[in-house]
Nucleic acid binder design. Structure first.
Length: 589
RNA sequence: CGGGGAGUGGCUCAGCCUGGUAGAGCACCUGGUUCGGGACCAGGGGGUCGGAGGUUCAAAUCCUCUCUCCCCGACCA
């Protein structure tokens, strides 16, 4: 793509002011620098500079992916049948963009492409000799998620994704394909100049086992990642665990049997703990939820109450809860539902006095999930399911029987690393890549089968792997900006060098730009008839990492080379400019 | 889905409360001066005030409905 472009002939609509609705740096600067324009909520047009940067990012992704897989290009328009086969037509709900053709046939826009890839595998793959396969594409994805689009390109409804899918004969093969992706992703993000963290991730509602996310720490991020100050432990908050300091249990009161205490008007954990003079750590937090299950008899969705017990000072983690109930959808109970089902006012809920053995009205049998942090605890305090009363002396396993113990709580900053015990930190981050051991879900659903070496029919095992193309650019901007604009790593910048020319020395600037471009650099020559101040401001704004200023010093045979990130100025003789960039940007290997 | 905010020229916004000929800065066009950090002077073009309906002699302004965009929440019982 090396070439010299003249700014005066290009469409680079820079703005002095950011749009009023932009909040994060990358959004403001992408618009101000003329990279993108909004078309509708979460839908953006990519203009010349933006598209040029994406082309470079995609080039890097493609180069590295070609080392491990084969590039396809799949349709964005999918027939309903394929999504019915995997069950995702209904599971995805409104997240899918759906449409009908003129005959009334249902279609949806590609969300990811497991179904399509698995369908190809079903039709074409016959033998273990054809495995492993890794197929990838770089194509638009469409999502209409409940969380509305925001933050410019960080969360949108149409975006570019590199998605790949692996097919292996057995889990050991999947491990290899997974590792290949892990390594390829590291190379891609390294080459894109990003500082990133690889974290263990929640494997999601779709089953599957191992999963890692590639995250870039930034306050603009919507995910929270937990990482150890000392060792290499890092995980998404949805998955992270920690070591807890032991808690001293209360001494049994009276004969040790559950006993009611009067707690008039004390509804919150804090209130009750203060009122009784104990720590919230000795109190049980009782949460009532509803999970929608399918009744095997009727085939209809049947709601089932789920009661969750946590240590009083702990927070329920939705993702962990979702795993604990096998990925089914949950929602908090309404106050009147609590009153109805448990005969208890909200605020005085507890595990005692609920009949765990039978259906509650139209709902199924209740489930009692207890967080691991309550295992082996004793003499705890919980609501008595009675207005203004709590119970003391409650010991899990003795006074009530959990349906199951599970890890349900969110880690908080400062807790101890599960590997080494050092303090954990929590940071917001943007997810730029995700790799996933899918298992057999899609290959089985689509009916893919191959013969193994014994002539036996087996279902190939799949992995799926995604990279958000736009997020690479936004993460890079979030990492490198100041009040005047941003600077990109040269590998993904629309141009590597901006050449600002003074009108008096027009020919010198043209000459330098021409020499740089024929040496293989992407050069943007600012030949506009503008005052120097305007050109400098624009050069600072638009993300180009280096600037050559041809000005007064030309009389001494010198030009300025400015590094945008540091503002460092280096005077170079006119003849040495090309060599300078050669050694800086194209060092011999 | 719930709550809040906002739609006035390409951009940022004022005007609305208290109805009476639609404004500013930036951007754009012409001419001139200027030229190393978003110049200055003079002249000029550009707006169905998101849309529909209503009240009124008269609506950007008041009322009703609607569309769009932004933010927060989807939780601690």
């Amino acid at each position: 793509m090396q070439s010299m472009h003249r700014w005066s002939e290009l469409f680079i609509p820079t703005l002095r002011e950011a749009p009023a609705d932009a909040e994060v740096a990358s959004h403001k600067f992408l618009v101000r620098a003329g990279y993108i324009r909004q078309l509708a909520a979460g839908i953006y047009s990519y203009l010349f500079l933006g598209q040029r940067s994406f082309t470079k990012i995609i080039g890097i992704v493609r180069q590295e992916m070609d080392k491990v897989g084969q590039e396809f290009y799949l349709p964005a328009l999918h027939p309903r049948e394929l999504w019915e086969a995997s069950g995702r037509w209904s599971v995805m709900g409104d997240n899918l963009f759906r449409l009908k053709d003129r005959k009334g046939t249902d279609l949806c826009l590609g969300f990811t492409e497991e179904e399509i890839m698995a369908e190809i595998a079903r039709k074409e793959l016959r033998s273990y000799k054809q495995l492993p396969q890794i197929w990838y594409q770089i194509a638009p994805k469409f999502r209409d998620e409940p969380r509305p689009p925001k933050s410019g390109l960080l969360r949108v409804r149409q975006f570019l994704m590199k998605d790949s899918y692996s097919f292996d004969i057995d889990p050991a093969g999947l491990d290899v394909s997974y590792l290949k992706h892990y390594d390829a992703y590291c190379r891609i993000f390294d080459r894109c100049g990003l500082t990133y963290v690889v974290v263990e991730a929640h494997s999601g509602a779709m089953g599957g086992t191992e999963s890692h996310e590639f995250m870039v720490r930034t306050p603009a991020g919507e995910d929270l990642i937990v990482s150890c100050e000392k060792c290499n432990y890092a995980a998404n908050l949805e998955k992270a665990s920690s070591r807890l300091k032991p808690v001293e249990d209360l001494a049994a009161a009276g004969d040790g049997k559950p006993v009611e205490v009067h707690t008039p008007g004390q509804k919150t954990i804090e209130d009750v703990a203060r009122y009784l003079g104990v720590s919230p750590k000795n109190k049980i937090k009782t949460l009532a939820l509803i999970v929608n299950e399918n009744d095997p008899k009727t085939g209809k969705a049947k709601p089932r109450p789920v009661v969750v017990l946590m240590r009083g000072d702990h927070q329920l983690n939705d993702a962990k809860l979702s795993t604990a109930v096998a990925g089914k959808e949950t929602r908090p109970m309404q106050e009147d539902e609590i009153r109805n089902l448990f005969r208890s006012p909200a605020g005085f809920l507890g595990p005692i006095g609920i009949d765990w053995a039978k259906d509650l009205q139209d709902f199924g049998r209740p489930i009692l999930l207890v967080d691991e942090a309550l295992r082996n605890r004793k003499n705890l305090i919980a609501g008595a399911n009675k207005e203004d009363y709590h119970l003391k002396n409650l010991t899990p396993g003795h006074d009530f029987q959990p349906t199951a113990y599970a890890d349900l709580r969110s880690v908080t900053a400062g807790e101890s690393c599960p590997k080494c015990g050092a303090p954990l930190r929590i940071d917001p981050a943007v997810e730029i890549g995700h790799i996933f051991k899918l298992g057999y879900k899609y290959s089985a659903a689509m009916g893919a089968r191959v013969l193994d070496r014994n002539g036996k029919e087996v279902t190939p095992i799949m992995g799926s792997y995604g990279i958000g193309i736009e997020r690479i650019l936004t993460a890079a901007i979030e990492q490198s900006n100041d009040e005047n604009g941003f600077w990109l790593p040269p590998q993904i910048a629309p141009f590597e060098i901006a050449n600002v020319r003074d009108d008096l020395v027009r020919t010198t600037a043209e000459d330098i730009a021409r020499r740089l471009s024929s040496a293989g650099f992407d050069v943007l020559l600012d030949d506009r008839d503008e005052r120097p101040g305007v050109k400098f401001k624009d050069a600072d704004l638009v993300g180009i990492p280096f600037r050559v200023t041809v000005g007064k010093k030309v009389t001494e045979g010198t030009v300025e080379i400015v590094q945008r990130s540091t503002r460092e100025i280096h005077d170079a003789s006119i003849g040495a400019v090309t060599d300078y960039f050669q050694s800086l940007l194209r060092p011999a290997r």
